[in-house]
Design a protein around this nucleic acid. Structure first.
Lengths: 218, 218
DNA sequence: GTCAAATAAATTGTATACAAACGGCTTAAG
DNA sequence: CTTAAGCCGTTTGTATACAATTTATTTGAC
């Protein structure tokens, strides 16, 4: 993995954007950020190229780079794609998953349940991520796993919001059980449908939440 | 769309890599390429960041960037993902496609058939691309369309190879007809399955072709 | 003669300097 | 008073210069 100064800055900036440190449409001042990171503009600009490629910022020639937070519509679209990617991972994993991975999956799921009971949000998010990433890898398609990982990471901050919806956490756990069951019995279509629904509902919940917060969006 | 010098160079380099101007694993000499493009190393390095992000090159700190042509396994994986993306586009498009788009689709398909009859390869590839891109856009999910477009572009050179297989062209046209029919009657699952099969078979054909060319790969 | 260490050449990574383009301000005309 | 044109400051884009790291070569010891 590439790890020069510019790459580290790119990762840090990505984190800052994903955690919402910048408001959407805000311009990223090169000199300002260069001073903040204690480097010159050169590595910063190289980092911008990377961020632009993943759609986190928009680069307008001679005007600068602007953070590009997805709106409600684009977010729904991304959740829709995520649902399909996860469904595909599940369909393939049902046929290819190893016993040890199944054990790990159940372990992660149990840890999730424990975190729910103990109200430990951070633990829940970590174990939930592990649960999904195991399925990505077990698809046996590393390119697919990479793409799924990328989008999952991109949607991470919005998933957190969505999970705050009442009763969503418990429902999510039930869905996980269905997914594990389908994978255990090697039911490809069952796993695919369960995962698609599991992720799709996240997008819908998120959308409802957004609408309820912005009732009079013109 | 961003169009500075560095972005133009990135596109040109991408074309060069995709068309196979560089062999896999080859190092891209900065000074050499800078001279070739008539620019300094700075915009070139910015272009490298973008290429690295899309997986076309691997950047190793203090050692340089190396072109990263996918091997047979990774290629099959990419075709598998492409098949799913297209299937999803088809499933959504079946419900959302407009009449004018359907007309355009039939036109593109007719042009494809004409190109096959006249043995005009370039025309075929262009119209075939148009056919697929219409379906991407008509999915009504612009994020999905963008992802599909990206991967389609990435696989373009390998698709050309695959289409040289005997009888594949005629079969491909038949598959197109099935796809158009499904979209016309709004059959979401039918369109999805037809598109998945259409693309998946491309990956398989390509694989067979590779195996026949490299029979004794150790 | 072979292997290892040191040195030299080449290449990448970063900083700085310069050129070009954009946005905002002033100014002048209608 | 409004509007448009020109100038100035700021910011981006590119080139060059310098620093750091790697690789190849040479030299010396075993």
């Amino acid at each position: 993995m590439a790890q020069s100064r510019a790459d580290i800055i790119a990762d840090q900036l990505e984190d800052l954007i994903l955690t919402g440190a910048f408001s959407s449409g805000e311009r990223l001042n090169e000199m300002q950020l260069a001073a903040r990171f204690g480097v010159s503009r050169t590595p910063l600009r190289e980092a911008f190229q990377k961020l632009g490629q993943s759609g986190l910022v928009e680069q307008i020639p001679h005007r600068g780079v602007f953070v590009c937070q997805p709106g409600p519509v684009e977010l729904l679209e991304m959740f829709e794609v995520m649902a399909e990617l996860e469904a595909t991972c599940g369909r393939l994993a049902a046929q290819r998953i190893s016993d040890s991975a199944l054990t790990e999956l159940r372990l992660a799921n149990n840890n999730c349940q424990a975190a729910v009971d103990l109200q430990e949000a951070d633990t829940y998010y970590r174990e939930n991520e592990r649960f999904h990433q195991i399925i990505y890898v077990q698809s046996g398609n590393s390119f697919l796993a990479g793409e799924a990982k990328r989008l999952h990471r991109r949607l991470k901050p919005f998933r957190r919001v969505q999970l705050k919806a009442r009763g969503r956490l418990a429902q999510s756990m039930t869905e996980h059980e269905v997914i594990v069951a389908a994978l255990t019995r090697g039911d490809a279509e069952g796993a695919a449908q369960a995962l698609r629904a599991h992720v799709a509902v996240q997008g819908e919940k998120f959308h409802h939440l957004m609408m309820s917060l912005k009732p009079a969006a013109e």
